[in-house]
Design a protein around this nucleic acid. Structure first.
Lengths: 255, 255
DNA sequence: TCTGTCCCTTTGTCCGACAAAGTTAGAGTG
DNA sequence: CACTCTAACTTTGTCGGACAAAGGGACAGA
């Protein structure tokens, strides 16, 4: 018979973790605002009363979490975590969990449709201008699969941004990051892939301009179905996302 | 006239970063599989030829990223990043970016509807059993707002799990983590809140069992609209998510 | 089989040190 | 006076070594 639970586990976090938690608390509580300087390592040594090595381990944790950064002169600042950096963590996790392209496709269908709906409803002049700019750059590189794939990724980031919904923006990013490398393969492999992609973007911008929700959803669906058809010419949707795709995400994270 | 680009920028990452990157590469490439032991710190010191402090800083980075863990005996293992841990990073970011409850609501509407659609289509016997178990536990604590809110959060995690789409599962988690604390407030503040919540869950399980997509979507919408109505009695949807909510996420992360 | 003990390894923490890069202040120059 | 250049000073990244606490393993004894 197991013993009755008389005692609770004691909280024995190592010192570096406590340092990280303490600083994190100040940031998420808002007592330290994004942009505010954290002291130097030596300051923190004095304040926490632990060794510099310990402080440094705590700092690494926060740095990796995106809560603090070092500016050009390597001084520590609190900062707003950047979506693309956080999302690349998630992309990495999805790869390791060996999610299939089908899961990616299905989730993206939902997320991209939601994005365009938001964009159609709420896009600002500036959002539309950014999208138009992206379109003209896409048209210029329609023959260059790598450049076009990059434009495509940016286009959808801009659509999500135009939705004015940052939760959605963040939620769609991990899946989108995994899409990006495949787009290049598909545009390369499918004749007419490039022009169709650009045409879809044109229709999408048009739909946003006219605030035509139906058209927006329709063209988003078509755009993704095009991707799917192209992909299925190369591989099965039930294949899991492969490790090699991570290279892109890793490069993106470092920026 | 600018000089022709004769040289590429040199990679001048600090040593601890290189250590972290090198280990990360082995993991995402699949050469180190989840569960495989990484060596001891001393091993790594020998392999990389840098000081132990440097190794330790690199390890902190990977640990925070969820790529490696220490088991009970503190030995290092590669591991699959856990969704809830990663999601709490995102929740934290959303709080710091001061997203509004409206954004949260809108995104969740999309994500939870997509989850239920997937669940209706693909839920396994086991998924349904888990949901049923959750329901009976919810019924037992219908008078306890905190416990009920916790059950509600778990319920929706289980629905997403039943969708068999891990991308969706991951995408919905950050927003859901921010919902959780409010549910408790709402159930406390609104008469009939608890019973309505449980009733909605019952209908949702029923819809999944009958593979009735329409009913599933309908009840998910109602469920979220209930939340919204309850929330608007307390505060405006345009209020931004507040810092205090992070406490939950911070506690969740440490698990 | 269980327990207690001894020994070895590993981790968490500390101390002190130093080179490289950045910062600041002051001298020198036009 | 504005400007540049240089010489301290500070801060970070890395190193070497140190030690206590905790874990793991082997082994003897009940």
């Amino acid at each position: 018979m197991p013993l009755a639970p008389l005692f609770r586990p004691i909280d024995v976090a190592p010192a570096y973790q406590k340092v990280a938690d303490a600083i994190e608390r100040e940031i998420v509580n808002g007592r330290i605002k994004p942009g505010d300087p954290i002291g130097t390592e030596h300051d923190l040594v004095r304040q926490f009363g632990v060794n510099r090595s310990t402080i440094r381990e705590g700092i690494r944790v926060l740095e990796e979490g995106g809560l603090i950064r070092r500016d050009s002169s390597r001084r520590l600042h609190a900062c707003l975590p950047r979506y693309s950096k956080l999302a690349s963590r998630l992309s990495r996790a999805l790869v390791l969990h060996e999610v299939t392209f089908r899961e990616l496709y299905e989730a993206s269908m939902t997320l991209e449709v939601a994005s365009i709906e938001g964009a159609v409803e709420r896009a600002s002049e500036e959002n539309v201008a950014e999208l138009a700019d992206n379109l003209s750059r896409s048209e210029a590189v329609v023959g260059d699969p790598a450049a076009l794939a990059e434009c495509d990724a940016e286009f959808h980031v801009l659509v999500a941004k135009a939705s004015q919904n940052r939760v959605l923006q963040l939620a769609r990013e991990p899946a989108a990051q995994l899409f990006y490398p495949t787009t290049e393969m598909i545009v390369t492999g499918v004749v007419e892939g490039g022009p169709r992609l650009v045409a879809a973007h044109r229709h999408l911008i048009d739909a946003i301009r006219r605030r035509d929700r139906e058209a927006g959803v329709l063209w988003t669906r078509r755009h993704l179905q095009d991707w799917r058809r192209g992909f299925e010419k190369i591989a099965s949707l039930d294949r899991s996302v492969e490790h090699m795709y991570m290279e892109h995400a890793q490069a993106a994270r470092r920026r």
